[in-house]
Amino acid sequence: LVRYRTISKIPQITLNFVDLKGDPFLASPTSDREIIAPKIKERTHNVTEKVTQVLSLGADVLPEYKLQAPRIHRWTILHYSPFKAVWDWLILLLVIYTAVFTPYSAAFLLKETEEGPPATECGYACQPLAVVDLIVDIMFIVDILINFRTTYVNANEEVVSHPGRIAVHYFKGWFLIDMVAAIPFDLLIFGSGSEELIGLLKTARLLRLVRVARKLDRYSEYGAAVLFLLMCTFALIAHWLACIWYAIGNMEQPHMDSRIGWLHNLGDQIGKPYNSSGLGGPSIKDKYVTALYFTFSSLTSVGFGNVSPNTNSEKIFSICVMLIGSLMYASIFGNVSAIIQRLYSGTARYHTQMLRVREFIRFHQIPNPLRQRLEEYFQHAWSYTNGIDMNAVLKGFPECLQADICLHLNRSLLQHCKPFRGATKGCLRALAMKFKTTHAPPGDTLVHAGDLLTALYFISRGSIEILRGDVVVAILGKNDIFGEPLNLYARPGKSNGDVRALTYCDLHKIHR
């Protein structure tokens, strides 16, 4: 019993810090008490220290592992850092350059016999395009090294910054494609005289377009951006097909006994025919423009016929181009109408809503002055909100995010209106959640004399007048207030005048 009563005193000691020596009952000389009392004092002292730490809000209350900052290894790049964003855009520009100039170089340097010394005699450094290609190869190699040090988000939505895990993730992902696209074939085969082989191998750079397509997928929600990307894709495919079309004609031209190829026909049409040795002929500019003209006309199913396939190889390629053109029509131009419709969806919704308003007016036989006010209010409210119901949009977000959005939407009023000066951010967040926005066209009466005042109004834009009878008592403008002081009276009061809008007004109100 003594032991039980001794232990039962522990909660009292913990909360009230009572010393055991003052209790005459606990001072009985028993061996059990002498053993338990020192333990009680020690526990009391420890609990006292913990309570003191909690009340003082000291940093040592938290466990040590929670006080440590997340460790980022040296030379690790955050995937959302500004440097990584700028670097990704730079790589994107280099990939676009590669997609345009690599097929052009591979096709127009394929057994090209233009006048001038061969590239091997001039030297590697004197070729501007080769120098640019070398810079692109170096940048792609540097990009691989950067990807080995860039964080990523795993399946659990955690940012991984450990170098080993980053390397394994990159090896399992895009490393092989990036490595093949970054191989400097110019340096590996330079001086061997195989410019045709170098041009063909350099087309491996186009593998990076797969990554670019995935990154550009984030802009699919913007109709104008999608339309622009589709047109660029169409032009890029036409450019690639033009390079292939020229390569076919250029390879067949020296081996044909009869002059029936499209390059021969082009030379005869523009007065620059090929001679018996295969030299001469149109310039590279004429060849490229004509090839691009043929691919565009074939892809769009126009086909004027002034550039036509004559050999079997050219006919087979033309059939493939027609098939590609039909697929592009289905996948690209078939979506253009939907994209344009999405661009004008706001206008369509406006006309639909206006039609419903006019049908309501016609069905209920609203008189002319009231009908005009109804239409003007709808037009003004639509121009202010673009038909978007803010309350319906915010309803799907958590309250903390709703408060931040409301604070942002009402920031101008909260910053410049005098009653809100000096208020804490928590108070402003709470008030912003209570605001209701209303609009009024010129001549609209917001409050009639004798109406119950259940709200306090803040003028965000425009001006109003307060009338008693036919006498203008006051004219209020931006950041002015009218209405009933909230919670100042037990019952809502009545208006002693009319409140009429002089201009288009936007008002925020808080109800009782």
Rank of each mutant, 00 (worst) to 15 (best):
A167M: 08
L200Y: 05
L299G: 01
L394Y: 05
V226M: 13
Y274V: 03
H73Y: 10
A242Y: 01
Y377P: 01
L279K: 15
I91N: 07
Y274K: 01
G422L: 10
P282K: 02
L428R: 10
G305C: 11
F108E: 01
R218K: 11
K434T: 03
W87F: 03
L187E: 11
T311E: 01
Y293G: 01
I405F: 01
G305S: 12
I141G: 07
M322Y: 01
R421M: 10
T102V: 07
T150P: 01
I361S: 06
G346H: 04
H239K: 01
D217N: 09
Q402R: 05
L414H: 01
E64R: 09
Y80Q: 10
G426Y: 01
N312M: 01
H351R: 08
R371F: 01
L236Q: 01
P282F: 01
I361Q: 03
T102R: 01
R208K: 06
Q365V: 03
K272I: 01
D143V: 01
L207M: 13
I405E: 02
D137Q: 11
F304H: 04
E158G: 13
H439W: 01
P367K: 13
H364I: 01
F108I: 01
G164C: 09
V226E: 14
D186Y: 06
E158V: 11
P369D: 10
H416F: 12
P82K: 04
D137P: 01
L431T: 02
A338S: 06
L92I: 05
E359I: 01
V447K: 01
A107E: 01
E221P: 04
H239F: 01
G278D: 01
A430E: 11
G280D: 03
S313M: 14
Y288K: 01
D186F: 12
Y274R: 03
T347M: 08
I91K: 01
K84P: 01
G305N: 01
I248C: 01
F363L: 11
S276I: 06
D444E: 09
V131L: 14
R356W: 07
L209V: 09
F360K: 01
K434V: 05
I198L: 13
L355H: 09
F420V: 02
S81Y: 01
S276E: 09
H73W: 04
